[in-house]
Design a binder for these strands. Structure first.
Lengths: 251, 251
DNA sequence: ACAAAAGTGTTAGGCTTACACCCATGC
DNA sequence: GCATGGGTGTAAGCCTAACACTTTTGT
């Protein structure tokens, strides 16, 4: 950490960061990957800084890969947060203390920061969450029960979810968040958690099939209680074509 | 300009700017306010820098007010452009030359810049466009015939229009772009230019009236050729309430 | 057998689409 | 009067919303 503070000023673009809202879907819940900050009870979005000559999207990809161990992650920039009061001077000083140094006036790290929000959609089971230098845990938290978060990270997470909801007919939500094979009820739960409301089972199924973006695999998911549901997978070509003009219909 | 370059480094946040896509509606065309750069034939979006302790939204508002003479402008941040290659070193050096100084290595102005795009909706007739220090003209250009623009400004303008189109059912497009009193055909032309396609006159009218967001003023617009159309104005309260959940319907 | 989950079907009503007809105005 | 733009109306078809019935599976 101490070394990082020394080199940061020459390596990174000043006063600029990226924060990632990483969505995953597990046990019928939409979840976000959060880091628990060392020495506090607060949580944070995975984030990082932008190198001086680096594309901002790449900075986000770096963060994503480091926290999840995944490559080729689907991500979208959704908003830039630039309130001058969004830093927490107390916290900054605390971090300096922990690194065993005195806070230097006008240090790169102590200035005002503007952060660019990205959201990512990943397949839950494939990720291997790992904490970074300043955190001691990395966990999935349900969007319905987000813990206390540092700075404006709660606002960032909320805005990401709003954006996801707004773009639901234009982004490959299902394809990126679900495993290759999935059942219709699973897809429905996903839509329900994103939209935050219940949908009619039968109408949902008819509508989804009408889009023509699903392939019926003919198999059934065995093992569960009750009647075994069919397995589907996305016809990626048709799915993407349909998303371009937007899936029709209001939810 | 020379003085600006001297003071910029201490006044402004490094490597960060805002660019505004200002939309206006006039003579049945959707237009964007552009600046013609001095000593070149290229055009640019009105833009500016972010002061060290200024909210990024305020920086955009400053730009807007300076270029249009208007206050209380409707504006939305829509995307941040962070390609490291988005600067134009040639142009930077030219600006230095024109200010009568030698380009200093590592000067504030010569570093890589990240820009935050905002779009604004204003009532055409109320604006008083005026150029800034580095431009010698300020004109409205139709979105259908945008001239050559510097850097990635064309991309920024296009993305703004895409966003506007995407959000058409959720933003007070009509209320902000049209004068207080307007006719149904005028409102339709506005929708048509934003959407980039023709709409059926009769269906448009029925749908708009069904929303219940218009007040029929009972008057007619006299003077024009042909039958005099009725004048309407927005019922702002109902309009805003309707926008919150989104105007229903696909265009 | 029973509860719970999943597959399939039906119908009324609303919205979209595609039209036809009449009115007003300037040339 | 005629071309053009504007106001009003109607019918077919599609989509949505609401709801009933049957099938499968573990207990």
């Amino acid at each position: 950490m101490s070394e990082f503070l020394d080199k940061a000023a020459e390596k990174y673009h000043p006063g600029l960061s990226v924060d990632c809202v990483i969505f995953g879907f597990h046990e019928n819940e939409l979840k976000v990957l959060l880091l628990k900050m060392k020495h506090t009870s607060k949580w944070a979005l995975p984030g990082g800084f932008v190198e001086k000559n680096e594309h901002i999207d790449l900075a986000a990809i770096r963060v994503l890969e480091n926290r999840t161990g995944l490559k080729d992650i689907f991500l979208k920039q959704f908003y830039t947060f630039g309130d001058p009061d969004r830093h927490d001077h107390e916290m900054d000083l605390e971090l300096f203390k922990q690194s065993g140094r005195d806070p230097v006036k006008d240090h790169w790290f102590l200035q005002r920061f503007i952060t660019m929000g990205y959201y990512a959609l990943i397949e839950f089971s494939k990720a291997s969450p790992r904490p970074d230098d300043i955190s001691d845990a990395c966990e999935w938290k349900s969007v319905d029960e987000l813990p206390d978060m540092i700075l404006d990270h709660r606002e960032i997470a909320d805005k990401a979810l709003d954006t996801l909801r707004f773009q639901i007919n234009y982004q490959p939500i299902g394809h990126k968040l679900l495993p290759v094979k999935f059942t219709m009820p699973e897809l429905q739960r996903l839509y329900e958690t994103i939209l935050g409301k219940e949908l009619d089972r039968r109408n949902f199924q008819r509508k989804m099939l009408a889009y023509g973006i699903l392939k019926d695999l003919g198999e059934r998911r065995k093992g569960g209680a009750h009647k075994a549901p069919y397995l589907y997978s996305f016809d990626v070509k048709k799915y993407n074509a349909a998303l371009k003009i937007g899936l029709k219909g209001s939810w």
